[in-house]
């Protein structure tokens, strides 16, 4: 029971941290229709930058999180630029940045070791790094950790909600909905895509830095699977509240992240070595997509097919232009009558 309880507590902690990644994916995927694979790279990037700032610059842990945000947003913008300016497909732009970041994050660990050697793990406790959740070897009470995480998540959620109500935020939403409208309003569609990806990956970088402080360890491989995890969280969250219009999507995404993280964490009770965790991640995600598609199909079936008005332009042309021998067609034209009389 105690093991189960501890798993629940750590699951909630992870879920809250992943909710911030999911916020990023919500912007990229749900708003901009951009399944952003660079997420897997910007997550550890935020972690390593945050850790460097804490360790080498001695900044406040919150500033370290901001550093993670800035680093993530720079590379998010890069993904956007590759796609917008150089016409590389969405998936490939993400893959390019993610792959580059595998090396970049590893190279950055030399700033931690201050030698030419890179490391894949860097413990906060072993190196006396003080994060938000530890002072030396003293770790913060796990319940307090949840409170702090919850506060951070809520602050970010409120900021995002406010942003989506601003002119710039509305333009971002409109970009994903109808690019033509953005052009009509005299703005560059590409700019909003880059901006959106920049914010999205900024949030991922922030979450990466937070994850490192929460686990009191920078892990170079922590990014693996974050795209799937974030996508799953977004899809679960939005699907659950799809009928509850009063629930903001940001709230839905938090719930989605909590559910998914808890489910995965409970799985570790069975799979003690964590060997099958990623497999579980993949299978669960596939199932979510399949179920989501089935539910959508059902809904479309249920919807009554509205009587479509004839939209065939050729028919209209034929009626009015090409068939003068059809007397009714011409009589429909008042101009003729007036002009002839």
């Amino acid at each position: 029971m105690s093991l189960f309880f501890n798993t629940t507590v750590s699951g909630i902690q992870l879920g809250l941290c992943y909710a911030i990644v999911a916020f990023g994916m919500y912007i990229a995927y749900s708003i901009l229709d951009f399944p952003d694979l660079s997420t897997d790279g910007t997550f550890p990037l935020g972690g390593v930058i945050g850790t460097i700032l804490l360790y080498r610059a001695g900044v406040h842990p919150i500033i370290a999180l901001m550093g993670g945000f800035v680093a993530g947003s720079v590379f998010g913008a890069l993904t956007g630029i590759l796609h917008v300016k150089f016409k590389i497909s969405k998936l490939l732009s993400g893959i390019i940045v993610m792959t580059a970041l595998l090396s970049i994050t590893l190279a950055l660990t030399t700033l931690l070791t201050q030698t030419e050697y890179t490391v894949s793990n860097y413990s906060y406790i072993a190196h006396g790094i003080n994060g938000l959740f530890n002072k030396g070897v003293n770790k913060t009470n796990p319940y307090l950790v949840i409170v702090i995480l919850l506060a951070l998540v809520i602050v970010i959620k409120i900021l995002l909600d406010l942003f989506f109500k601003s002119k710039a935020g509305m333009m971002l939403i409109a970009t994903g909905n109808n690019e033509t409208l953005i052009t009509s309003l005299g703005k560059d569609v590409g700019f909003y895509k880059i901006l959106g990806l920049s914010i999205a990956n900024g949030l991922v970088g922030f979450a990466g830095a937070l994850y490192a402080q929460m686990t009191m360890n920078y892990d170079n491989t922590s990014g693996t699977g974050k795209v799937v995890l974030a996508l799953a969280s977004v899809i679960i969250g939005l699907a659950i509240f799809s009928k509850a219009k009063f629930v903001k999507p940001t709230t839905a995404v938090i719930v989605g992240a909590l559910i998914y993280a808890l489910a995965l964490n409970y799985f570790t009770l069975v799979d003690k070595n964590g060997t099958y965790l990623k497999l579980m991640n993949a299978v669960a995600f596939a199932l979510i997509l399949i179920i989501n598609n089935l539910v959508k199909k059902q809904r479309i079936k249920k919807k009554k097919i509205s009587p479509k008005t004839p939209t065939n332009i050729d028919d209209q042309v034929m009626n009015i232009l090409s068939l003068p021998d059809k007397q009714e067609t011409i009589e429909d034209v008042p101009v003729t009558e007036e002009a002839q009389s």
Binding site: K165, S166, K167, G169, M171, G186
Partner: peptide, 20 residues
């Protein structure tokens, strides 16, 4: 309402002030 607000702002800055 939101659509009209966007259109009304055409040619101006789309900054961080309230959209509607």
């Amino acid at each position: 309402m939101e659509n009209l607000s966007l259109a009304d702002n055409k040619g101006k800055m789309f900054g961080l002030t309230r959209g509607v």
